[in-house]
């Protein structure tokens, strides 16, 4: 049903959407989309963990730790992400140990792994600031009330500060997650077979650049819309009745 339509479209109008009638290209497209989604999920997870840990470390009493966190944020926010990625993959990748795969050697961390590490660390540098701002937005009077009720510092953080801070930073977090999902396409440069890479190999095989470009744009528009929708639902779910109006 779908395949004949696109085949006819190719013959009559010259619009070659090969993945929709060619089983091999279809497989490649699905694989690319799947790896892209996987990559984005891993990157976001890494960046969130770094964000929470970093924001916590920023409240540390040690000046050295605070300086290191500040240095981390500034270095990764003020240098080109593509160079960061290349630095990690080629620079650090060259000195990481290799494992014997029975005859041939493979690096412990592959290109997918390095993309997750590099882009995750890049995104984390924004998340640290976002979480920190959220924590700062929790009124000190509210935590003081908890203190007066006998809450320990840990319980104050878990039951009062964190739930409120998370709500306060959701809008900024949504923006950063969307921007990270887009930045994940950089993994192309170290040949991670995600969507951009896959479609580019399809268009170099079939010489159908404009058509595949439309698919690529459509993929990202839909992906971003879905993430935005999901985050919006979360925001709505967590909204406090009567608060902030």
């Amino acid at each position: 049903m779908i395949a004949p339509f696109f085949e006819r479209l190719n013959k009559t109008a010259g619009l070659n959407f090969s993945p929709f009638y060619d089983a091999y290209d279809w497989g490649r497209l699905l694989e690319g989309m799947w790896i892209s989604v996987e990559l984005i999920a891993c990157i976001i997870a890494v960046s969130l963990v770094i964000g929470v840990v970093g924001a916590g470390a920023q409240t540390s009493k040690s000046r050295v730790i605070r300086f290191l966190i500040a240095a981390y944020i500034e270095i990764f926010r003020n240098t080109p992400p593509i160079v960061q990625l290349l630095f990690f993959y080629f620079g650090l990748g060259a000195i990481t140990p290799q494992v014997d795969m029975g005859g041939w050697y493979e690096p412990i961390i592959g290109s997918f792994g390095w993309a997750v590490i590099a882009i995750g660390i890049f995104g984390g540098s924004y998340n640290v600031e976002i979480f920190r701002s959220g924590i700062e937005a929790v009124p000190s009077t509210t935590t003081e009330a908890a203190e007066s009720l006998g809450f320990s510092n840990f319980k104050i953080f878990v039951y009062i500060t964190l739930p409120l801070a998370f709500r306060f930073c959701l809008p900024a977090l949504t923006n950063n997650i969307i921007s990270l999902a887009k930045t994940a396409s950089l993994a192309y440069v170290i040949a991670v077979p995600e969507i951009t890479y896959t479609l580019s190999s399809i268009w170099s095989d079939n010489v159908n650049v404009p058509e595949m470009m439309i698919l690529l744009f459509a993929y990202y528009i839909i992906l971003v819309a879905m993430i935005a929708k999901g985050m919006h639902l979360l925001e709505k779910r967590l909204a406090l009745p009567g608060y902030g109006q």
Binding site: P139, T141, T142, E144, A145, A146, E147, S148, L149, G150, I160, L164, L240, Y243
Partner: peptide
């Protein structure tokens, strides 16, 4: 803190 309760000017309820 268990012995002493305090109420603030700004209520400070957990929103």
């Amino acid at each position: 803190r268990r012995k002493i309760g305090i109420v603030f000017q700004q209520y400070n309820l957990f929103p």
